[in-house]
Amino acid sequence: MTSFEEIATLVKSRSGLTLGPDKTYLLETRLEAIARRLGVAGYEALAPLLRHDRLLQAEVVEALTTNETLFFRDTRPFDHVRTVGVPRLLAGRPGNAPLRVWSAAASTGQEAYSLAMLFSEMGAALCGRAVQILGTDIARIPLARAREGLYSQFEVQRGLPARMLVKYFRKEDESWRLIKPIRDMVEFREWNLLSDAGSLGRFDIIFCRNVLIYFDPPTKSRVLEMLTARLVPGGLLFLGAAESVTGLTSSLRPVGGEHFVFEVPRVAATVG
């Protein structure tokens, strides 16, 4: 087994992420800092060190599974939540139960906090419902950053409208920190999408965008089935614009002809 295959096998078993031979650049760039710190030449020399070092294994998996993210990445899902998703969910489930929202690949928190700001902006349109947002990720270090809610000048300029920057952030030296009421809307937890998510409960809205693209078809199906089982009847699953459920699950159908939001038909949901 080559060093690449050895690392790819480890990453697949831990995270489900499939690293094909075309991804050698990813190992070269993302593992460079770890290799340099350990005084070895490149990822090829890391492989033997990984075999008996569980901490190093975790660090390598984390380095290869951390995704770039930005505030309000692709505005359409957020517009959909505001104009279609929430009104539908509230109409379908009268009462006072909080809306539960899951950002399933939260990374450094921009998606979860974008949702928190979106719900904060919705105000009275939420009809008094509380909103609970859970942000999970397999990678520990990005989650620690997410909990801090502190972002660089560069990060707050990417996707975040200036009006929301001044409303929801406070300047701290050269960085910007989200205000506490927004931070308090989100709980972050370390979580592997391949594990049984039953203990997380059920959600009205799940965002799991630009994650499935990294999985092989059987893993995509498995993750989609898990996500489907976590949706309340009528709940909505948002995937990345380039992602599809075709051929992977029959439990989900697109909502309103949009290719990025799916629901569990009510009959299927009551069985799950």
């Binding site: 200036a162 009006r163 920057l165 001044v166 952030f169 406070r170 300047k171």
Partner: peptide, 9 residues
Amino acid sequence: GADFIVSAI
């Protein structure tokens, strides 16, 4: 600064 951004908006 936030005050500059507010002025701009």
